[in-house]
Amino acid sequence: MAAQALPAPALALVVLAAWQALCMTVYQGKGYLLPSPLEVASAASDHAGLLAAAALTTLREAVLGYALAALFGIALAAAMSQARLLERCLYPYAVLLQTVPVVAVAPLIVLWSGYNERSVVLIALIMALFPIVNNTLLGLRSTPRQLLELFALHRVGRWRTFIRLRLPAALPHVMAGLRISAGLSVIGAIVGEFIIGAGNSAGGLGVQIVFAQGRMDTALLFAEVIAATVLGFGLFAAASGAGRVLLRRWHESAH
């Protein structure tokens, strides 16, 4: 176990060493462009309260958007898996949500919904929705034909077949979509905060990043970006852990 966990921390140390070396050579005396790891750590320590409050705000917005995306995405995929006509009608619009740049759509969402957390949650929902819909639909469409025929042979109804066979068989795909969307929900929350935070000094990490950039406080800016990265990784890890708990007894992807 120790040997498996060693490469990631080792790589992190190499990156920190290279970062410090750049600050001492190419960017020496140019902390406004690239602050050293120690300067970033000092800025994080000096503004710990601000970072914690902003991270909690962003986490709340991202989790709300993520939960709504999971609810609507799984329900939408389940409905489309039961009717080809419904899939042909709705799936192109689900793809459209993924292909339209969120940065371009976000100002419209804020204009319609207001400069508030509701807009941020909606943007996070849009960012997180498609992977859940796509992976869940793929899983529901990939049920082994032999098992479907076995259920039909025993005259199991369509609803019971869905609950007892199709949905459990699709669970690995569902969890894959949820893992992808976990990080995307944080990205959506940050993008939403960029838009709504233009005139507000309080708010999540996206708002604080905008203000740190305006003050040219690069060390704090780096600290806030790292905090946002850790937040996204934490949600991804939580979704991965939930997947391992649900799948570890019967699916090889959890081992």
Rank of each mutant, 00 (worst) to 15 (best):
R60C: 13
R166W: 08
A62K: 05
T57K: 11
H154Y: 15
G114W: 08
L51K: 07
L90Y: 09
L85D: 03
F151I: 01
V121M: 15
V103Q: 06
G114F: 04
L68W: 05
F162C: 03
R160K: 14
L71D: 03
L111C: 01
A169S: 11
L148I: 03
T57D: 13
L147C: 03
Q82W: 06
L165A: 13
N116Q: 12
A169V: 12
A79D: 02
T136E: 04
L97Q: 11
P144L: 08
V120C: 10
A78F: 07
I74D: 01
L90T: 07
A128Q: 05
V120Q: 04
A75D: 00
R145K: 13
L68M: 09
Y93R: 01
L68R: 02
V121D: 04
W112Y: 14
L148R: 14
V95D: 07
L137T: 00
A169N: 10
T99M: 05
G49C: 10
A70W: 07
R60I: 11
Q146E: 14
L138Q: 13
G139M: 05
R160P: 00
T57I: 10
P131S: 07
V63A: 14
N116T: 06
A106I: 08
A124L: 12
L129W: 14
Q146Y: 05
T57W: 10
L111W: 12
L71S: 10
F130R: 06
R166M: 10
L90A: 14
I132W: 12
P131V: 00
A75V: 02
I126A: 11
V120T: 11
F72Q: 00
L68K: 01
P172Q: 06
R84W: 05
L122D: 00
Y93N: 02
A128K: 06
C89T: 05
L122I: 14
A79L: 14
P168T: 03
V133S: 08
A62E: 01
Y66N: 00
A78T: 13
Y91P: 01
